[in-house]
């Protein structure tokens, strides 16, 4: 799933300092699961803003809502006719949701309440580890299901580099060396041949905004203005 981290409170407070009526909008999907932007986090942020502004004698009117998803039009539509009552929106969705919300209500400033931190697994409650950079060129078939783009600090395709340190990465003893792990797992599977050949230079696909249209689907025609 997509994981995110709540922005520092001071930063959020500064974004909305000129506004007197603000909607805090959460998202009920990824950011809710990773405890950054679901219903509960919306309630906490709204309470924080309320208290901080009242203590500064600059009270603020707040709305709070949590949409099922902010990356789908049908859920954003639930705010049609209501978002307009606010001077600004703080969205706790991932960067995707924040932008889609901002696109839906182009006259209203939309601010990010979280920093989106990647595509991660749930190791335990509150503990997430990044696993994918969505490069668009998956090589996991040859790397024993361990992503070198994400988990090697240098994103090497022909590792390990000379900095691997008893199975750890040179950047941090706590960070496993992805290529050490790739080697060990492939060896265990008797598949070291997978990495004996040189992996050629990557043909990067994530350098332009990507649009994905699945087979059998077409881009709908622009809605008439």
């Amino acid at each position: 799933m997509i994981v995110a981290k709540r922005k520092p409170f001071d930063e959020i407070l500064r974004m909305i300092e000129s506004h007197r009526k603000v909607l805090v909008a959460g998202c009920g999907t990824c950011v809710a699961v990773c405890l950054a932007g679901g219903e509960k986090e919306v309630a906490v942020l709204a309470a924080e803003i309320d208290m901080a502004r009242r203590l500064k004698h600059e009270p603020i009117e707040l709305g709070q809502t949590t949409l099922e998803r902010q990356c789908d039009r049908e859920y954003l539509a639930q705010l049609d006719g209501r978002a307009e009552a606010y001077e600004a929106i703080v969205s706790l969705a991932c960067g995707v949701g924040i932008q889609f919300l901002a696109e839906r209500f182009p006259k209203i400033p939309v601010y990010p309440g979280v920093d989106t931190c990647g595509l991660a697994v749930n190791q335990d409650v509150g503990w997430y580890e990044e696993r994918c950079r969505s490069c668009g060129r998956c090589v996991l078939d040859r790397t024993a299901g361990i992503c070198p783009v994400t988990l090697c600090a240098k994103g090497l395709y022909n590792g390990p580099c000379g900095g691997t340190n008893r199975g750890s990465c040179e950047i941090d003893p706590e960070q496993p060396c992805a290529w050490y792990a790739i080697h060990e797992r492939l060896k265990g599977q008797g598949r070291l041949d997978c990495i004996r050949a040189i992996t050629p230079a990557q043909e990067w696909r994530d350098t332009v905004p990507r649009t994905l249209i699945q087979p059998g689907y077409r881009k709908p025609e622009k809605a008439k203005a």
Binding site: L62, G63, Q64, R82
Partner: peptide, 16 residues
């Protein structure tokens, strides 16, 4: 508690 003297103004926007 200095917040005692005022009340929050928070409205819950239910999903339609």
């Amino acid at each position: 508690n200095p917040l005692k003297n005022s009340q929050p103004a928070i409205r819950v926007e239910e999903a339609a």
